[in-house]
């Protein structure tokens, strides 16, 4: 317990540096050491946020972006998860499909953009497709590896104790691969936002990316920075939600029940 009693080992200390940076940034901007056309001050960014919130634009665009992200995530996640399950549990499917998936996986999914634009134009489908493809692979790999790495001794125990194949799956294989699947989900959430940012920047008539591109055309630096902050907040928020799930679902794991 000695480690806990150090003066820097508490909840507040890690926040000191970010706060200092923001204050410094404000001061540098306020005294025109950095001009607002180069980088607006934190206060100006917050004011831009309040302005757009009052007109309702902020909520509208954030909602649309979040929707795209989640729809793409659910589609890509489900496809990845189902392939991971099938390949992890049925050797025939694994032998048939896994090598192909591993090969396709090496293509950076953002390299597909020209193709995607040709196929779908720049409408909703293109963005959702790009998110789905990006999300699919990390979920696939982690589900597949998670299942493959479930302790064989537990599976043997389960069959000695007369569990049916279905019960073996629901009681041992699926929960045993859950930690890996959750790692995949957290990683995929990051990929989800990156794919969306890129997709929305290329072409959109709504969403956070649209806010950014149109603000850039009018040189509204405060809004440009605001959109960056919005993406950061959304990314952090989804990671936080995933962490909460992790804690709840893995509370049996000594690494997570730190009370």
């Amino acid at each position: 317990m000695k480690r806990n009693s150090k003066w820097y080992n508490n909840e507040i200390f890690p926040w000191v540096l970010p706060i200092v940076i923001i204050v410094l940034w404000q001061i540098l901007g306020q005294y025109k050491i950095i001009t607002s056309t180069l980088l607006p001050t934190p206060v100006e960014v917050v004011q831009a946020g309040i302005r757009l919130f009052n007109t309702g634009e902020l909520q509208e665009h954030v909602l649309i972006s979040t929707q795209r992200a989640l729809i793409g995530f659910v589609i890509g996640g489900l496809v990845g998860f189902i392939f991971g399950l099938l390949n992890g549990t049925i050797l025939f499917v694994e032998k048939m499909v896994d090598t192909t998936i591993q090969m396709v996986r090496t293509i950076p999914h953002l390299a597909l953009i020209p193709l995607v634009v040709l196929w779908f134009g720049i409408d909703e489908t293109a963005k959702i497709f790009l998110v789905a493809v990006g999300v699919m692979f990390p979920i696939y790999i982690n589900t597949f590896n998670g299942i493959k790495n479930v302790d064989g001794k537990l599976i043997e125990m389960g069959s000695v104790y007369g569990l049916s194949r279905w019960k073996l799956f629901t009681n041992i294989i699926l929960p045993g691969s859950l930690p890996a699947i959750l790692v995949g989900i957290r990683y995929a959430l990051g990929v989800m936002w990156i794919s969306l940012i890129v997709a929305e920047t290329i072409g959109a008539d709504s969403g956070i990316g649209f806010m950014a591109t149109s603000a850039r055309e009018f040189m509204q630096m405060d809004i440009v920075v605001l959109t960056i902050v919005l993406y950061a907040i959304l990314g952090k928020l989804s990671d936080f939600v995933a962490k909460v799930f992790e804690r709840r679902l893995l509370k049996w794991n000594p690494a997570f029940n730190n009370k």
Partner: peptide, 17 residues
């Protein structure tokens, strides 16, 4: 017959109470 084994390692399922 119903056969059960007690193994050298306990083989308890960590995510079940």
């Amino acid at each position: 017959p119903k056969i059960r084994i007690m193994f050298q390692d306990d083989r308890l399922i960590p995510w079940k109470n």
